[in-house]
Nucleic acid binder design. Structure first.
Lengths: 197, 197
DNA sequence: CTATATTCGGAGCGGTAGTTCCTGTTCCAG
DNA sequence: CTGGAACAGGAACTACCGCTCCGAATATAG
């Protein structure tokens, strides 16, 4: 499970135009999903890729599979970032910086926010499996920050994810204003801190 | 514009079964929209009301009009609550209590959250006009709280509304857990407060 | 009770979106 | 060069949804 599915199934090498079209589709889907979200019609992705819908459906069995292939990369990247952030000497700062990163990414890319939200509703869906790595990373960051006493003791990983998703909705609501986005993130992080003192 | 539209337009008294059906539709729509949100099919509302879709469309020109009629009541009620809360002797507490009320209402009722979100995207739509009263109430509460120094000086009414909407998404994400809902609201309110001290 | 304007109901229309199917085309081994 | 298998493309199929239309039912005036 690492190179993409063959069409035939035996061991024959794939044709050159097939792999070319596959990459065109992936590129177009990345652009369109990021700009418009998961609700964009499949035909639009195919058109942008310069390909018919039949071609698209030969490479990806369903729209959801294509979407999962696109957001999977982002999610893995974010999960890795969370993993490395756990090595930070200041756990509190590490958590808050990662929240800022996640909020900025998800507010700017519609596909990422859609994926996070879908994962919360349909636990069975393809993207939900991709999110667990990210959730684990947040969990690790939060544990260290809690041990340090940098955040309220009663918050769990689900709370953090919920707050981030919510903040992204708030940010998107006002047209991606950069200053406001930073303000909302700052407010949420301040709220996560332990009380005054 | 206060009693609902007549069908004919002259001055004839409406038929008894017509007003009965109108109220059935309103009741069914209130239940279904609250449970499933604005995206619920019109046929389902009609079925629940024990009425055909044709009947529904005689009383309400469009689905959006029906939806606006349903959420309009809630929005006015909330706007009134915000108005009266402005008379509170403690502006900070008044604002935070109202945020908690709004979040609880919107997290439990899908229609209210959908309306708030739709108003942020389509400024032209019917519900957007209904939200301005609520926004004005929040504005007033925030102004007093800011003057008292109970909240950060750099937050605006739009920030508050965005945060509340976001918080509701976070709350809904985890299945309406009561304790978690209160925790998220508390975190956001704490973040809105002026820094430590 | 009768007449008639009003209302009811749901089949059907137009549009959208995901997916499939089939014909014509293209690449590659031999 | 050539045969044939893999591939491309988009029309068509299915499902869904908001909305309309018109024959059937019915409430109310006289």
């Amino acid at each position: 499970m690492h190179g993409g599915q063959r069409t035939g199934g035996t061991g024959r090498a794939p044709r050159a135009d097939a792999v070319r079209n596959r990459e065109r589709i992936l590129l177009a889907a990345a652009q369109v999903f990021a700009a418009q979200g998961a609700s964009v019609p499949v035909d639009l992705v195919a058109e942008r890729a310069g390909v018919g819908v039949g071609t698209l459906y030969r490479h990806f069995p369903t729209k959801e599979a294509l979407f999962a292939a696109i957001v999977g990369g982002h999610l893995r990247w974010l999960a890795d970032a969370a993993q490395t952030a756990q090595g930070d000497s200041d756990p509190g700062r590490a958590l808050f910086e990662f929240i800022g990163l996640l909020a900025t990414e998800a507010a700017g890319r519609h596909d990422l926010l859609d994926a996070l939200e879908q994962a919360g509703v349909d636990v069975e869906c393809a993207v939900a499996a991709q999110v667990v790595g990210l959730a684990a990373g947040i969990s690790g960051l939060l544990e260290r920050a809690t041990a340090q006493g940098a955040v309220r003791a009663d918050v769990g990983p689900e709370d953090v994810l919920g707050l981030v998703i919510g903040t992204c909705h708030g940010i998107r609501r006002m047209g991606g204003d950069e200053a406001r986005a930073r303000r909302l993130v700052a407010i949420v992080c301040e709220g996560l801190r332990t009380g005054p003192g």
